[in-house]
């Protein structure tokens, strides 16, 4: 059981699974195959990433960019599913302790079984899950099992959440996954951005870290946006590298992540 530590100093620390200047790198499990995924996870750890967001492929990823949608297809083509993903993670855990969260649509998890899924998460040290099609209202679907095995359900906030932001933040744990509405390129240098306002609203409600995920891909963007929140999530850019270099991608992922992480810590 996850101890109820929310009211203590220690509890706050344990509830917040990223700290300042975090870099979270997204990759799709099984793109192009699970062996490469394992190498990429280790490469990201070596390059200084603070967390890996591991995509679980789904046939109909309705809330993703075209880049990530295509990665889903490649991963399914290589025969990837939760059973062999967990086996890969068991192997990876021999070489890396980097925090990992799983990004999965609800149906593959439902199909695997909630209890077995979260039990496996605990076993391979997956600290959180991000479920794009499980909004606040449906969290009870998995909460009992996530709590039982001490896995955080990471909550999304978007600008359209508006008056929902307080409610979501109040009940959030791990960190808040914030997806701004305008592209990162368009938002550069906009000092009165929606980002600051929404991060402020979240922090007023709860002392919880916020990570930004919206197509950040250059070092200057990473540097700029990491100041506005606790962490940045880099997905499309890494997935594009894997798409381009396929089985030889781990070293390119390493170089890229290192460059981005350096940009973030040189604040």
């Amino acid at each position: 059981m996850l101890p109820q530590l929310q009211n203590t100093e220690e509890g706050l620390l344990m509830n917040n699974i990223i700290s300042k200047n975090s870099l979270i790198g997204f990759i799709m499990a099984g793109d192009p195959d699970l062996e490469t995924t394992k190498k990429c996870i280790i490469a990201m750890d070596d390059a200084g990433a603070d967390m890996v967001e591991l995509g679980i492929p789904f046939s109909d990823p309705i809330a993703e960019s075209k880049v990530i949608q295509s990665a889903n297809i490649r991963a399914l083509k290589s025969g990837t599913h939760l059973t062999n993903i967990f086996l890969m993670l068991e192997q990876a855990r021999k070489s890396t302790d980097i925090p990992i969260i799983c990004h999965s649509y609800i149906n593959p998890i439902f199909n695997y079984g909630y209890e077995p899924f979260f039990e496996m998460c605990k076993k391979v040290k997956v600290t959180g899950v991000v479920v794009p099609d499980l909004p606040y209202e449906e969290k009870s679907e998995i909460k009992e099992y996530a709590d039982k095995y001490g896995v955080h359900i990471i909550s999304f906030v978007v600008p359209a959440s508006k008056e929902r932001i307080q409610k979501i933040s109040q009940n959030a744990s791990g960190f808040i996954y914030f997806v701004p509405s305008i592209s990162s390129t368009a938002m550069m240098g906009d000092s009165s951005s929606e980002i600051d306002k929404i991060v402020e609203i979240i922090k007023e409600v709860k002392d919880i870290p916020v990570a930004l995920g919206f197509g950040i891909n250059t070092a200057s963007q990473a540097e700029y946006f990491s100041k506005k929140a606790d962490g940045v999530i880099i997905g499309n850019a890494i997935v594009k590298i894997i798409e381009k270099y396929s089985k030889t991608s781990p070293e390119y992922v390493y170089n890229y992540v290192k460059e981005m992480k350096n940009a973030i810590i040189q604040i």
Binding site: D133, E138, V157
Partner: peptide, 20 residues
């Protein structure tokens, strides 16, 4: 009530919840 027995619900991305 968003359901018929166990069926139904609102399993959609946060970005659509406000509009729903």
């Amino acid at each position: 009530d968003t359901r018929f027995g166990i069926f139904g619900g609102q399993y959609i991305p946060e970005v659509l919840m406000g509009e729903i």
